[in-house]
Every structure is written in structure tokens, then in C-alpha cells.
């Protein structure tokens, strides 16, 4: 199971990184979201995977590690805020620069 998880994490990361390297803001936002998914799952998995054992005292006998869960919970919410901010930034850039390229200009205008 660990192997499958590692491979899936690798695929998520690779997809995210590839999209981050694209030239258009929307792709970068997609990439960023995939990458934060990967990081969240990675952090969560550091508490190891256990089924049927939520960290509720008295409900079950064996508890999953609650600490990574707490960390990831706030990470998800802040990741959402960051995505929203990036989206607005992309909109602002698209309006002001009249291009949705990350460098704010058409790619054929190659700089030195």
C-alpha cells in the first residue's frame, strides 16, 4: 500500500510541477492546486494510514495520529485562501497587462 501511495504522490507532484512550468496563469493555478494536494496527502500520510480508527477518544480503541490531521486541516483552509488570492492576482494581471502569460507579455517577444 505504501508503494502505491508513494507512486500516486509522485504522479500528483509531477503533474503539479509540470503545470507550474507552463506559461499561462490558469495552468499555474491548476498546478498549484495539484501540488498542494500532494503536500497535504504527504503530510497526512506521515501519521501513517489506518482505517476505521479516527482520533475520537472513547469511540474506538486504536487511534490514528491526530497531529498531522490538525496540521493538514489548517493547511487546506489556507491553501484555499492562497488559491483565491492567486486567482485574483491572475485576473488583475490579465486585465492590466492584456495577456494571461505569466511574464505579462506574449512569449514571442523574447527577452535577452
Amino acid at each position: 500500500m505504501e508503494l502505491i501511495l508513494a507512486v500516486v504522490l509522485g504522479i500528483l507532484t509531477a503533474s503539479g510541477v509540470y503545470l507550474l512550468l507552463r506559461g499561462r496563469t490558469f495552468s499555474v493555478i491548476l498546478g498549484l492546486t495539484l501540488l498542494s494536494h500532494a503536500v497535504n496527502v504527504f503530510l497526512f500520510a506521515m501519521g501513517r494510514l489506518k482505517t476505521g480508527s479516527p482520533a475520537l477518544i472513547g469511540v474506538v480503541d486504536d487511534y490514528a495520529d491526530p497531529l498531522p490531521q490538525a496540521l493538514v486541516l489548517t493547511a487546506i483552509v489556507i491553501g484555499f485562501a492562497m488559491t483565491a488570492f492567486t486567482v485574483v492576482l491572475a485576473l488583475k494581471a490579465a486585465v492590466e497587462l492584456r495577456s494571461d502569460h505569466v511574464d505579462g507579455e506574449a512569449p514571442n517577444e523574447d527577452r535577452l
Binding site: 508513494a6 504522490l9 509522485g10 504522479i11 507532484t13 509531477a14 501513517r48
Partner: peptide, 16 residues
């Protein structure tokens, strides 16, 4: 992307 993904997978696998 493949390199970073592979490294990340290795890290995760090694830790798990």
C-alpha cells in the same frame, strides 16, 4: 516534473 515527482515519491516511500 518527473524528477521532482520521483524524488518526492522516494521520500514518501522511504519515510513510510
Amino acid at each position: 516534473a518527473g524528477g521532482v515527482g520521483a524524488a518526492f515519491a522516494t521520500l514518501a516511500y522511504g519515510l513510510l
